[in-house]
C-alpha cells in the first residue's frame, strides 16, 4: 500500500484516542487546596481529576451561585457520533487514496474543531455568567468564567485550562492528513516518471 494511504488511515484512526483520553482539563488551584481540584473534559463526559473533585468544585461554586458542572450535555451525545463518523470516513478516504479528499478531510476536521471550541466557549460563558440571583456571595461585575485556554485568576482560585492527550492526538491526526496529501503528491509525481 502506498505510504500516503497508510498515513491517512493512521491519522484517522488517531481520532479513536478521544475515547481513551480526555480532550481538555480545567484545574483550580488555591492555597487551601495543596492538591488542586480538577476536571477532565472528554468528548462524551466530564470526570474528576482526583476522586470527588467535581462534587467539591460544585460545593465551592454554590456559594457564588454557579450551577453544578453539567454531566449530561447534549454535546456529549453529538461529539462521539461526529468523531466516529469522521474516523470511519478518514479510513475510507485513506483506502480510496484520492489526495484531494485527504485535504477535504483535514479542513473539515479543522472546521469541526473550531466549531467545537466555540461551543466550549459558549458553555464556559454560560457556566461562568448565568448565576443564581440568591447566591450567598455576590460581587458586582465579577464573572466566573474559566479561561478557554491558559490561566486566569478567579477570586481565591487560579483556574488553568489546557488541552490533554486526546486533543494532541486529534491535532496529530489532522496533521497526518496534510502530510498524506503532500506525500500523495510526491508519489503521483514518481508514477509519472
Amino acid at each position: 500500500m502506498r505510504h500516503s494511504k497508510i498515513i491517512m488511515i493512521v491519522g484517522s484512526l488517531m481520532l479513536f484516542s478521544l475515547f481513551i483520553f480526555p480532550l481538555w482539563n480545567i484545574t483550580l488551584e488555591a492555597p487551601q487546596y495543596p492538591e488542586p481540584l480538577g476536571m477532565d473534559i472528554w468528548i462524551n463526559k466530564v470526570t474528576d481529576g482526583n476522586p470527588n473533585d467535581i462534587k467539591n468544585i460544585n460545593l465551592m461554586n454554590h456559594y457564588i451561585g454557579m450551577r453544578d458542572v453539567p454531566v449530561d450535555l447534549k454535546e456529549f451525545k453529538i461529539f462521539p457520533i461526529v468523531i466516529l463518523v469522521m474516523a470511519v470516513l478518514g479510513v475510507l478516504i485513506g483506502i480510496i487514496g484520492k489526495r484531494k479528499l485527504f485535504l477535504f478531510w483535514g479542513f473539515t476536521m479543522i472546521v469541526l474543531g473550531i466549531v467545537g471550541m466555540y461551543d466550549f466557549y459558549l458553555w464556559l460563558y454560560d457556566y461562568g455568567h448565568n448565576l443564581n440571583p440568591h447566591a450567598a456571595i455576590k460581587i458586582p461585575g465579577q464573572g466566573y468564567m474559566p479561561p478557554l485556554f491558559g490561566a486566569k485568576s478567579i477570586l481565591n482560585f487560579n483556574a488553568i485550562s489546557l488541552p490533554k492527550a486526546g486533543a494532541y492526538f486529534m491535532i496529530v491526526g489532522i496533521t497526518f492528513s496534510f502530510i498524506a496529501f503532500f506525500q500523495a503528491k510526491k508519489e503521483n509525481k514518481k508514477l509519472y516518471y
Binding site: N52, K55, N56, L59
Partner: peptide, 9 residues
C-alpha cells in the same frame, strides 16, 4: 444520626 456527606480532605 448525622452523616457528613462531604468527600474532601
Amino acid at each position: 444520626h448525622v452523616t457528613n456527606v462531604e468527600q474532601d480532605y
